[in-house]
Design a protein around this nucleic acid. Structure first.
Lengths: 206, 206
DNA sequence: GTCTATAACTAGATAGAC
DNA sequence: GTCTATCTAGTTATAGAC
């Protein structure tokens, strides 16, 4: 396993857990068991390392998601909102084959990107991967054509917030579900819990 | 205006904007135009300052919210979920009288508390202000008694996420609404946008 | 490519004069 | 209560030997 990948794996885990600001290069290189200087040799700076961690996931996720959403848009029948949101499940869970705890880590990182780092990551993602959002908006519009562009804008942001926030604290939530309700739920279970919620929210009367 | 309050005001603004981790004591004291040592003199540590900033809001908000929710629970009629969520509007907007941009700042800080600071703030708030959550759960239960305790747990967390995430990025969202949709919405408008969404989400079929 | 050593800087916290 | 000066420990980043 290359130094570069050891760094990416360690950084991903720590960033997801403690945020970008809250994680130092020293912690990363010590968990990765590589030299401190290796981060700057391979990535140039901490900011570039953050981008590299996110890109590794986006490059894996975005084609699968695109094809799932395009499928929905091209089918003749009108899809339900639940179908549109369910299109995310398989691509997101596939991240677990690609990397251990891939789904959780990625969604937590996404959440961090919106709150840490003063929006630089949000900018990076929306400019580097514009298709993901465009396809999603198109799919929702097909499922619910009456929704105005502005209401769509608000509701997609609300949805983003629900998902991202839930996933940022999914470890704590799964613990509570296990202790208080004896329900040993995994990340796929959390995703399946949240879909009816966001589908109903987007479909709410204005 | 006392040094202590100057520090609280400056800290609040910077914490809301850049997070707890992302704000240094030096930035705070320089914005407050007080000496660096004053933070440790008046509050003891950065962590205690964070608690003080949040307590100032919670002490203002929590009695108003409690009375609004208790009102709903004690009325004989079954309330709708929209009524329950609407009970938050007046107490939240009242924070604007108490402090300039009080509503936005408080909600942004709440969002930070869930993602920054590895949960210490969440712990502090839930142990110091347990009534807020209990009253809320009771009100939702009265509006939607069929919802199981576990589904209630998940959906209240989803709701929390929607609100908190939306408010963390409310400045950016209001900018977009103004530029793309010529809609000059304020924080009260955002709150009124989000209520139908979360009410429908909580009421979704299981 | 990988290491040591260190530069250059920032963090939170405190001692002690006033 | 407020100041200056400083401590200790942490940060990112880099120069240069191997």
């Amino acid at each position: 396993m290359s130094t570069k990948n050891k760094i990416l794996d360690a950084a991903e885990k720590l960033f997801a857990d403690k945020g970008f600001n809250g994680t130092s290069l020293r912690e990363i290189t010590s968990l990765a068991e590589v030299n401190l200087a290796a981060v700057n040799y391979h990535f140039g700076s901490k900011k570039e390392l953050i981008k590299a961690v996110m890109s590794r996931y986006m490059d894996e996720l975005s084609p699968r998601l695109e094809s799932a959403l395009v499928n929905i848009c091209q089918s003749t029948a009108q899809p339900s909102l639940t179908e549109v949101f369910s299109a995310f499940v398989e691509p997101l869970l596939a991240l677990n084959d690609f990397q251990e705890h891939g789904t959780t880590n990625f969604l937590q990182l996404l959440g961090r990107g919106y709150t840490d780092s003063q929006g630089f990551l949000r900018w990076f993602l929306t400019t580097s991967y514009p298709n993901v959002i465009d396809n999603f908006v198109e799919a929702v519009h097909k499922a619910y054509p009456e929704l105005s562009a502005e209401d769509m804008f608000w509701r997609l942001h609300f949805t983003m917030g629900t998902i991202v926030f839930t996933m940022s604290s999914s470890d704590a939530l799964m613990d509570i579900a296990r202790n208080d309700f004896s329900n040993d739920i995994d990340i796929g279970g959390v995703i399946r819990q949240v879909i009816p919620y966001v589908a109903a929210g987007v479909a709410a009367p204005v």
